[in-house]
Design a binder for these strands. Structure first.
Length: 344
DNA sequence: AATCGGCACAACCGCAAGTTA
DNA sequence: CTAACTTGCGGTTGTGCCGAT
């Protein structure tokens, strides 16, 4: 049996919303709430719209305290940093930016931020001069020739040629510094306090109060894991000459999905400064595998769930975070529905 | 003034997860 | 337990605006 359509396509209006439709929808929701059923809502108020369309219009445009445009530098950095960390989980990213919607952030990223980041990166590379060029060409040639045996729909993002200098990551280095280095390089800005490799995640905020990014901060990785389902898996082909050889592009887990050019640029950046990046990615893929790419002793594709706290690179942060969370911090979603919808 | 291309944004689509009967 | 249904999410598309030619 096929899936039931969410609405009668023939009888619904599509395209831009008129002011009258907006008024109707807003007035009704402010007065009655959604009734917990978006599908039935348009019929109730006499709108020839699909329920999903109503929901989207409300969430992205009509609900109170929505901000459009005018992203601050601080917000830019948070978006960049989170994107690097958790990929295109726009709803999670949006949850950290009061008044912003996932759609807004997604558009902003795709149209501006991505290019801004690339521009920054190119400048850096130009500044470094041609010293890397030979190596990069080598890398490119090598990766073009390379296919992973038995792997379908997977791309070797990190060429398997051993970089000229690829020292093992220092196990003594503060892991905070590792990821901090990476994020800073890629546009993030992080508190200088070594105890605070942190981002303003999972912090309840008053909708119309300015947000203090410095005072309200939470560990990025643990917070991400505590939010909605981060069931992403990062695949790794073991036995390659470098760690993090392969990222599965088929699932929702590719941190760089939809970012073909950027991904390539990023990998170039990665190889042009392998130590810092290695330090940074160590955090995402786990120290064990970084130190010993063949630790599983198999040639199979390994997956680790980001949703699994134990798989997080630094579980000690998680425990600290959880303790903190239990004391004071409730889970935060994009917004508190009850406060918006009134009587249900 | 007309046209073209790029950009920004709103909205739609399809899928997956969650919920309910 | 399972099918039907709803909600949420991320990717993609459509459209209007604006600057360059």
């Amino acid at each position: 049996m096929g899936r039931a359509p969410c609405c009668d396509k023939a009888n619904v209006k599509k395209g831009p919303w008129s002011p009258e439709e907006d008024t109707k929808l807003k007035a009704y929701i402010e007065e009655n709430g959604t009734g917990g059923n978006w599908i039935a809502l348009p019929q109730k108020i006499g709108l020839k719209r699909c329920g999903k369309s109503c929901r989207l219009r409300w969430l992205n445009y009509l609900r109170p305290n929505i901000r459009h445009g005018g992203f601050s530098e601080e917000e830019d950095n948070i978006i960049c940093s989170l994107y690097i960390s958790i990929g295109s989980r726009w709803s999670i990213i949006a949850a950290q930016l009061p008044g912003r919607t996932d759609n807004d952030i997604k558009n902003y990223w795709n149209t501006k931020l991505k290019k801004k980041l690339l521009g920054k990166q190119r400048k850096e590379q130009q500044a470094r001069g041609a010293t890397c060029l030979t190596f990069k060409h080598e890398m490119k040639r090598e990766s073009e020739n390379y296919t992973v045996p038995g792997m379908v729909n997977q791309v070797a993002h990190w060429p398997l040629l051993q970089p000229p200098v690829m020292p093992l990551p220092s196990t003594h280095q503060d892991p905070h510094d590792s990821i901090r280095n990476l994020l800073v390089r890629l546009g993030g800005r992080i508190s200088d306090n070594p105890m605070n490799f942190r981002y303003p995640l999972d912090v309840p905020f008053a909708q119309d109060q300015p947000y203090d990014y410095d005072q309200n901060s939470m560990n990025i990785l643990s917070s991400a894991s505590s939010l909605s389902p981060l069931n992403s898996t990062c695949s790794q082909v073991t036995g390659g000459t470098t760690p993090f050889d392969v990222i599965d592009v088929d699932g929702p887990n590719d941190v760089f999905q939809g970012l073909d050019g950027f991904q390539e640029e990023l990998s170039e950046l990665i190889y042009s400064n392998s130590q810092q990046i290695l330090d940074g990615f160590e955090g995402f893929y786990g120290t064990d595998n970084m130190v010993d790419g063949s630790s599983t002793g198999t040639s199979s594709v390994e997956s680790s769930s980001w949703g699994d706290i134990n798989s997080l690179p630094y579980p000690q942060f998680v425990s600290g975070f959880e303790a903190c969370q239990q004391q004071t911090i409730p889970q935060v979603s994009t917004y508190n529905e009850s406060s918006y919808f009134g009587p249900q």
